[in-house]
């Protein structure tokens, strides 16, 4: 009996929560649990009302009474129910959604104890800018952005001389917070790394930070979650490589430009 029931649930994919994807960042557990709590509320309402509904259909439809009752239900149960729903929502809001969101957007880790990466989305790939060995970006100005200077780099700035530019692939150390400054060169894209539970629209003219702490090494698929043109579904080339510290260090050493990056900055 139980088996057939689970079988049916599987067959019709009613077990929504079991479809949560791999989780690999510090915030993933919070987020998944939060999704579970909301779904418990939804499930309770759904099951409760469904039971009531079937009962009513049987009692007042299938076996029709002689006469309808002008006054209908004489109970205040529904009011209590509505208040309960409201209270649960307030709890979810005040104790979970608001503080968790604040944690995610307000306390962006400082450059000292995090890796900083600039992301410039472009039809249909991801440009990355890594601050290099000195952990300092060169200056950036939106009015300098063009096809060749994709990050709007100020060429004069000495901090920018060792910056690393890559397309679609970027390497990061594991267990260290990473901040992505997400922007776009053309239309709106959305920088979404599902396994890290991270998502930020890439909006031209704005550079918006989003961060997390990856907990597992591996090569992570970057999704573009915003319709960005006819290549939207093919914008699948981006990957975050979360490396062990030693792998990361050797990547960094290998990629540091010997005498500053290519003359124009960015890459062709």
């Amino acid at each position: 009996m139980i088996d057939t029931l689970t079988e049916i649930i599987r067959l019709f994919n009613l077990d929504w929560m079991s479809h949560l994807p791999v989780a690999a960042s510090d915030r993933a557990a919070d987020l998944d649990n939060f999704i579970r709590y909301i779904h418990y509320l939804m499930l309770a309402l759904f099951v409760g009302w469904s039971g009531y509904y079937l009962l009513v259909l049987y009692k007042f439809g299938w076996t029709r009474p002689k006469k309808a009752d002008y006054h209908g239900a004489r109970t205040h149960a529904s009011t209590y129910l509505e208040v309960t729903v409201a209270v649960v929502e307030v709890v979810l809001l005040v104790f979970f959604a608001i503080p968790l969101w604040a944690k995610v957007v307000e306390s962006v880790p400082s450059p000292e104890n995090s890796t900083q990466i600039r992301v410039m989305a472009q039809q249909f790939g991801w440009n990355f800018m890594h601050p290099g060995q000195d952990d300092m970006f060169g200056k950036q100005r939106f009015d300098l952005v063009n096809e060749t200077n994709k990050f709007g780099r100020d060429m004069e700035d000495p901090n920018g001389q060792d910056d690393i530019f890559t397309l679609n692939e970027i390497h990061l150390p594991v267990e260290k917070e990473v901040v992505f400054h997400v922007s776009s060169l053309d239309v709106i894209h959305s920088f979404k790394v599902i396994a890290l539970r991270m998502c930020q629209d890439a909006i031209p003219g704005l550079s918006i930070p989003v961060w997390c702490k990856p907990l597992k090494e591996g090569r992570y698929q970057i999704n573009c979650a915003q319709l960005c043109g006819n290549g939207h579904s093919a914008m699948t080339g981006g990957f975050l490589n979360i490396d062990s510290q030693s792998d990361y260090d050797s990547w960094l050493a290998l990629n540091t430009p010997a005498d500053g990056p290519a003359a124009v900055g960015g890459f062709e």
Partner: peptide, 16 residues
């Protein structure tokens, strides 16, 4: 199902 979308935190995963 509008509820998990209505909370911004869960919307991080579910958006789009």
């Amino acid at each position: 199902t509008g509820l998990p979308l209505g909370f911004n935190y869960s919307d991080i995963l579910l958006h789009d």
